[in-house]
Design a protein around this nucleic acid. Structure first.
Lengths: 144, 144
DNA sequence: CCAATAAACGACTTTTTTGTCGTTTATTGG
DNA sequence: CCAATAAACGACAAAAAAGTCGTTTATTGG
């Protein structure tokens, strides 16, 4: 569904949002441990998201990643777009470049429903809405 | 969503079904041209599907690929399972190995709806149901 | 039997994705 | 100012996916 990069990215953002909601910044090491991802790799991913303006950071001691109030409203769709682009929202299910309403592939309309469902879900899910359940250990971000 | 291999595989199967419905076999060259895919690559993919028992073939002149009456009932889900496995139907949206009802990721339940929707759609779509619209040029399998 | 045809098969190459490493730059607190 | 800290950055390495090539095997029709 999503690339691994994107999966890590979403998990990292949800974790950063949780920390930000509690008023804290968090560093690459802490994030990597929390979401069970390779440290250097999420560093690279967060660099990309930072450049995309989806996360803020400061260098040095007391530095780290965080979301300001605007960014807390960031949706999962925004993250996916920044990492994987919009092909999951717009692309043809059978990989056809010129598939569209005028020249649809055999599953075009059925597939559109799926894609729209994915988009709605991701668009309505904001990174910061998951903090409460994570705090209560009702949901998890790591694989162990 | 699907791997390229899988996209080619589904397109090839739909094309083979169309030919089979018309009572004909079709060869790798013809398939490759019809669905706009690399010839050798399609050969490799069909070899896999043939081993999985999802398509039949004969060698030699008058040979080629075809579906017998049983195989015409094959669903797109069967093809996806044979090529990409079942991770799209069962896997966690955030890539977590041990994500489940007891230890769900933050988007587990929302994502389950999506996955179930994909499964239902693919399960209910049979390869041979697309022939009529393809014949009428209402739908297409190539990118040009 | 033979030549032509077409799938089967294995080995290989290329490209993309994923992941790693070492260095540089910015910031902080002492 | 300085040592410690942490993100930024670029280059590289490994693994997986996508795609290619040449040869072999089976089948057909003449």
């Amino acid at each position: 569904m999503f690339s691994k990069t994107c999966e890590y990215g979403i998990r990292a953002m949800i974790f950063i949002a949780q920390k930000s909601n509690a008023g804290n910044r968090t560093g690459i090491k802490e994030i990597a441990k929390a979401i069970d991802a390779p440290e250097h790799f999420i560093g690279k991913i967060l660099l990309g998201l930072s450049r995309a303006g989806i996360v803020k950071s400061f260098k040095g001691p007391t530095g780290g990643f965080f979301l300001d109030d605007d960014l807390k409203q960031c949706s999962l769709a925004d993250i996916v777009k920044a990492i994987d682009g919009d092909k999951i929202f717009l692309g043809c299910g059978l990989g056809l470049k010129n598939c569209n309403e005028k020249k649809p592939c055999p599953i075009h309309y059925e597939f559109k429903k799926i894609r729209d469902g994915i988009y709605d879900m991701l668009q309505n899910a904001r990174v910061s809405e998951f903090s409460a359940n994570l705090e209560k250990h009702l949901t998890f971000l790591n694989r162990k």
